[in-house]
Design a protein around this nucleic acid. Structure first.
Lengths: 307, 307
DNA sequence: CATTCTTACGTACTGCGTAAGAATG
DNA sequence: CATTCTTACGCAGTACGTAAGAATG
């Protein structure tokens, strides 16, 4: 096990030239310094000193260790220096969501955040999954809610709800009411999300892997546009069930019983590990709470805007 | 004293939610984990966990500590991973010197480096002190030899020789041969190095501080130009004694016995702390060796070019 | 009352200091 | 022979494990 004491000793040995002087600097004995270095070498398995002369002569690798040791000790000082400094109160949260989220539980989330952090300035941003991920990687955004589950280890991802998509069309447009197969839809124009959207990509891959290729498709990243096209009878849409409940109840769209059902799309909240996570992690928890609540209630989009 | 064990425990507590699970992950007991955290808190003086509920709830500062802890543990892994990797052999050294050095002991240094590192590619660069310091800060150069002694703590500086400047003029140009004062030179045009050069700046400041202002001066950054002007009888030059020995012996320039003597200019070799220093630190030692040798021998510039 | 963190206490062990040993120049 | 790193050995303090206690919901 590497210890900071070992690295500190290494630093002063190099700085002062001998074990003796480093020991004096650290208020201990040469013996202790020597043993710290031996322990450092055995625990890392790296020859740090060139021992064929009895001198504190660094090897090339020891030199590289030294560089990293300096960085670690600098971090240690940073931790200690946190003691004094006051933390500026949380004031800004840049959150990124996809269009689907913006339609459904974003208003809920905003209300919940306002309750928990009255002084918080929210900067929501609606964009494609791809763009959101890039913004997060560039540290231009603090937390995003996107389709997908596995992310780089430099991020933390919290699973949210799964989004269920359904086949829908204008009532009466598709003749047979029961047990449709995917191939039965080949004669229609298929309306679905583009591949820049995470859900669209997820489902496109799933279908490709099973050899399902629709002859005519219209792909857009705008959900309202797709819904409008479907309601206008231009084709069959495969869209998230949750956000079009009002269109179903008004009989402007009907759900088609297609089998097999395509898989539902898992969403995750994702934030960086290398930033303070106090705000982002609680936001992620709030996201999970509000979107699970939503899945059960399935309220109309319009009603969600009220706090 | 902060230990890596403590930080590792902190990481897993946050990752897994409870002390219990962190203990299981680290093959120890909750008790040990609890004590590591208490010790971390007392040693840093920072409240890391919010203790008013019995939960592993980070405070804002604990959150900031976590970010730094992640970085430290990442560095630890980097150190361990050094074990396997082979170090690419040293092959390139970008060294920056001032004009004076280029004239005097740079050839010596190059020979010495060639002896010690036969496969080394040298990239010498001659520029003003200011430009060299900037290049070093931007990591465009590995080591520089410049006037000055105190530098930022992110650099290591090794003292080299002191450069002695002397007043010189064409023989017979200045009437009185003994005990000249600085004010006696006011009637002549003074030839000295510009303020972009470290030595020029150093001496200008020294003279300013003592109220010495020469009415007519010519300042250039080119030493040969100054020497040429002095030899041509255009004025009195204040220039490093070392590099014009041949002009003295050929009676083209004479040293003026001006008192008080201006201070000699200390030179240092400077290199970054945040890069492997194996090559740069030995280069600095070689520099000290060759330039001290030079000060005693005071050989002609032309003879120094031979290895 | 179950979960979860803290405290108490005895133990094992790691790291240290003293002092002697070995290697280098 | 002086300097400098390593080894040996006994000690002390630290960190740990078991087990009980306290606080929370």
């Amino acid at each position: 096990m590497i210890t900071l004491k070992q690295l500190e000793a290494l630093l002063w040995i190099v700085e002062l030239g001998t074990f003796e002087r480093a020991a004096a600097k650290l208020n201990t004995t040469q013996s202790a310094i020597s043993k710290r270095m031996l322990e450092l070498e055995t625990s890392t398995g790296i020859a740090i000193f060139d021992r064929h002369e009895r001198r504190a002569q660094l090897t090339d690798k020891g030199d590289q260790v030294l560089v990293l040791a300096r960085q670690m000790l600098a971090l240690q000082e940073q931790i200690v220096s946190l003691k004094g400094g006051e933390n500026p109160p949380l004031r800004r949260l840049r959150l990124g969501v996809t269009e689907l989220t913006a339609f459904t539980w974003l208003p809920h989330l905003v209300s919940a955040l306002r309750l928990n952090y009255p002084n918080l300035t929210l900067e929501p941003q609606v964009d494609s999954t791809q763009a959101l991920c890039e913004s997060l990687a560039e540290d231009k955004i603090d937390i995003i809610a996107v389709p997908g589950t596995s992310f780089d280890s430099t991020f933390t991802s919290v699973p949210l709800a799964k989004v269920t998509n359904v086949w829908m069309a204008r009532p009466g447009m598709v003749k047979r009411r029961h047990s449709l197969k995917l191939t039965d839809l080949y004669e229609y124009t298929i309306l679905m999300q583009g591949r820049r959207s995470g859900s669209g990509l997820f489902l496109s891959k799933w279908m490709e892997a099973r050899g399902v290729f629709f002859p005519r498709t219209i792909a857009t990243d705008s959900l309202p546009a797709l819904a409008g096209l479907a309601a206008a009878g231009l084709g069959v849409g495969y869209l998230p069930r949750q956000c079009f409940q009002p269109l179903f109840s008004k009989r402007m769209l009907a759900i088609l019983p297609v089998k097999p059902a395509l898989p539902s799309v898992p969403y995750s909240a994702v934030y960086r590990n290398d930033r303070p996570a106090a705000l982002t992690s609680t936001t992620a928890k709030l996201m999970r709470a509000v979107c699970n609540f939503d899945r059960e209630s399935a309220a109309e989009p319009s009603t969600l805007i009220k706090p």
